[in-house]
Design a protein around this nucleic acid. Structure first.
Lengths: 211, 211
DNA sequence: CAGGCTGGATAGTGCAACTATCCTATGAGC
DNA sequence: GCTCATAGGATAGTTGCACTATCCAGCCTG
């Protein structure tokens, strides 16, 4: 299909498609004439991925590009899929990979959950984050961490299962990134629900607008 | 203190302070002369709040203004604090308050956690979110929801306790918003950690860069 | 009374993500 | 062969947000 048709098929304006082509987010179509290129299904999927990462997950084009770059040349093997998953996490969480001081409470969490204790980028990120929360005076208690651990274990399992059920890498990325985001928002909303419940317990009623 | 001193005290440029004054995010100082105003501690705290909500939580100035508006006229009573907390959740989560179809899995969660079953904005938000996830083919299972519920309960309790220990409303807001954000990021990172662990279990090793 | 700082208004900057315009080269129709 | 609409490519302009810089008048100090 031609650019105009690709635009109609995806709902993305021709100008934006051109912009993505220029930006290197979308591969050029197969040139069938000097002034004509042919776009296919992969372009449609790629555009859907870009749109999803932008509008749902809220990533910037630079971050999207980093994820896309990781997908280039990757095959469908489990190892490559995990690699891709890791890149998505890396970008979405803004991990930087530099080592951090292990936190005792995180040690406790890892042991309680039976997770491997190897230092890793994710572990560093958790350690750093817990340290930041402690510095802010809002350190998570052992019970909170334990609850997070169980929740995280359940998400991780579900995410891996869903992710590996996907056929193509665009789907893998989209499922992983949107899954992370959606689970995250879900937890926030459940916390809001829990807080409403707790405030009822403490004060006999929810906070109300109308006095 | 004068504008220049307020700037030095907070690290916010005079131009930005003027901008916040114009935007209505920061109350004008007490005019001591036609061309001189006096700023006090409340301006320092307000600026710290604005900075925190912007740089840590990532809110836009419109959202910050909505939270600030809710704080105006509020007193230190538990009810007002809860009201404020609710506004913060409202803004940070983008809740809209319109009713949603109750989801059976959320019903199950609420009953399992012993939370009050009253319909509420938070409940609607959770119902809508679960529906969206189901539509996206990434519906959370009962085990995942149960784990979230326990985690949320722990956060809510901790958050309420920490929040109510704060003295002034600026602190209440900042603690609530930054707490939400930090806990949220923490969960994401713990999920990343859990995922690394699961991938080791499944495939005998973490995904690696170096092959 | 001059200079500098204050506060207030207005306009400009930088970034991100588009969006509109222009240009060139076909390729279809006559 | 010639014209003209259109695709594709390059360039510049727009929008929204969050500042930032400039300008101006007042007035307090020295």
């Amino acid at each position: 299909m031609r650019l105009g048709e690709l635009s109609e098929a995806t709902g993305v304006s021709p100008a934006s498609i051109k912009f993505y082509l220029r930006s290197g987010l979308l591969a050029a179509g197969d040139p069938i004439h000097p002034t004509r290129a042919d776009y296919g299904d992969r372009h449609v999927r790629r555009l859907a991925l870009i749109q999803g990462l932008r509008s749902v997950v809220g990533l910037g084009l630079d971050d999207i590009r980093r994820i896309l770059d990781a997908a280039i040349g990757a095959d469908d093997s489990p190892a490559q899929r995990l690699m891709l998953l890791r890149t998505v996490q890396h970008v979405v969480l803004g991990l930087d990979g530099s080592p951090a001081e292990p936190s005792p409470s995180v040690d406790g969490l890892v042991q309680a959950m039976g997770w491997p204790g190897d230092p890793s980028e994710a572990r560093f990120a958790v350690d750093r984050h817990v340290a930041a929360m402690e510095a802010a005076g809002i350190a998570p208690g052992a019970d909170v961490l334990a609850a997070y651990g169980r929740a995280a274990d359940a998400i991780a399992e579900a995410q891996l299962t869903v992710t590996h059920a996907r056929d193509d890498l665009e789907d893998v990325i989209l499922t992983a990134a949107i899954g992370m985001h959606m689970h995250n928002q879900l937890i926030l909303k459940i916390v809001a629900l829990a807080q409403a419940s707790h405030s009822i317990r403490r004060y006999g009623g929810p906070p109300r607008d109308d006095g």
